[in-house]
Design a binder for these strands. Sequence first.
DNA 1: TGACGTGATGTTATAATATATCATTTCTTG
DNA 2: CAAGAAATGATATATTATAACATCACGTCA
Lengths: 166, 166
Amino acid sequence: MASREDFAMTDLFPQKGHDHSRCVDSALREAEKVCDAENARFTDMRRLVFSLIWKSHKAITAYELLDAIQAGGQRVQPPTVYRALEFLTQLGLIHRIESLNAYFGCDMPHHHHLGQYFICRQCGRVAEAVDEEMSNAVRKAARQVQFRIEATTIEIKGLCHDCATH
Amino acid sequence: MASREDFAMTDLFPQKGHDHSRCVDSALREAEKVCDAENARFTDMRRLVFSLIWKSHKAITAYELLDAIQAGGQRVQPPTVYRALEFLTQLGLIHRIESLNAYFGCDMPHHHHLGQYFICRQCGRVAEAVDEEMSNAVRKAARQVQFRIEATTIEIKGLCHDCATH
DNA sequence: TGACGTGATGTTATAATATATCATTTCTTG
DNA sequence: CAAGAAATGATATATTATAACATCACGTCA
Ligand SMILES: [Zn+2]
Ligand SMILES: [Zn+2]
Ligand SMILES: [Zn+2]
Ligand SMILES: [Zn+2]
């Protein structure tokens, strides 16, 4: 992926003409690092699923992944895909979008974070934010009601700047 | 439901021994008001589904509803349940919890709001908050990245105070 | 009243998403 | 290489959701 510094603050979503091969390369390198650090095996299947997820900045469903793999000639079954997805999710290399039943690649798997997801209904792209103000607001609200947070799902649907203006 | 004033600030989740029939009665009255105001028909099936959802403060799935209806002797099919759910959701009488594929009754259907849901993994209860600080943080973050919000999903999983302490 | 139009529900079939279970293969490590 | 652990293959099935068309119920107005 392009590194975070390549974007202005308002460009959470990647530029239309960006060099996406850099996104993919960088994501793969990061994933390898994380797997190494966790002493986890980045097998061919996991790498394949991960690469397919990184084909775009959109979220992709398990069965779309399955179809893509089968289109590549491998006769793979749902459990195989779901296992790879579980593995990648556990390691934080990808995130699941609950409201879409779909997955997309994380920009910053090395750093443990509670993310918030902006999802454009027009172009389908997903952008992850790590906004401390949102996180803090959630933590504060939880504290007020004495709720012990274990996981949060923050998904924001609408139109990205590109789609809202063009 | 017990009115909001019955709870201290930290009691977003209802008290264990509360008189739940009051919750149900109040919810039904509110639902009728909303349907009236919207000139929508609160049919028997919709009322039944709504009542079943309000059987508890937990979220319930479409097929659990279906089973409950069938247990009551009616031979109803999935589309019927999903239609009732869609109707109730549209009117804001219930909310869908994306991360559970389940539904639960809204406390305050009369007032248009973006809610946040606390979900206890232990007791299964769901509590809805309408926290302006969370909403504002989301709106502000969206503004910063020039994202036009159309819907938000904020689901917070963990342990409620009761379950964390007992 | 009763024919009509609309909205709600019934009915059948199937699509889409996800997991349980056991068999086999691959990897690691001694 | 042998043995155990981890990953994947394979089969079956569970769970969640919708498409499509038929019928029924209800309000309206001729
Ligand atoms: Zn890219
Ligand atoms: Zn867009
Ligand atoms: Zn109650
Ligand atoms: Zn609880």
